[in-house]
Design a protein around this nucleic acid. Sequence first.
DNA 1: ACATTAAGTGATT
DNA 2: AATCACTTAATGT
Length: 219
Amino acid sequence: MKMENDKDQILEKLQDYYSVVFDDELLNEIAEIGVYRRYDKGRTMIEIGDELSEIPLILDGAVKIIREDSKKDEILMYFLERGDTCAISFVNCINKNKSIFRGEVEKDTECIMIPVRKIEEWLIKYRSWRQFIVDSYHNRMLEMVEAIDSLAFMNLDDRLYKYLTDKVKIMRNFNLHVKHQEIADDLNTSRVVISRLLKKLERSGKIKLGRNKIKIIDL
DNA sequence: ACATTAAGTGATT
DNA sequence: AATCACTTAATGT
């Protein structure tokens, strides 16, 4: 009885973003197999080196995917949001590899976890699942290329502005609650530099600064 | 009132 | 663009 209830709740949540992606039979099976989970903002969902045994289907929220080097320097790769999954972790799963990224919860996140076995099984069983995984892999690839491009071809001013506008989209809010130091960490630079560039953006009227907050005025 | 943390700035490399 | 060294401002106890 309780099980049925859980299943129905999961199914209901799935409808919002995944009913167009998956057919009914698959949707039903996901609801049956998947485990609903909530992650609070600030938590680490996955750490570099961790072994994956399941992958998340994001229902709501956002997860920041970070790459870190041996010297603890880090750089933001991309965000996962509703409707996303991480196909990178999916391939990791199948090969029983360790995660090459860290996932930090940027915004309270709801997701459904799918165990590896099912991921593989469904790949054969459902065309819509196959499509979803391939699309997801492609999207991760595009986002990584974007990350490389901005790193290689953009100066810090533009990278910073892109960072801010991306974040506005992810958070669905023009008022960002973020410290200069956190931005510096994400872009792998120093706080002083970020503070100066932000001041410049404020002077040009694109943003408004406050303690622990930044308001983006025009996109 | 004092300590702590975040942000602003000039000078130097 | 990074670092240092310092100031100023906001917030917590």
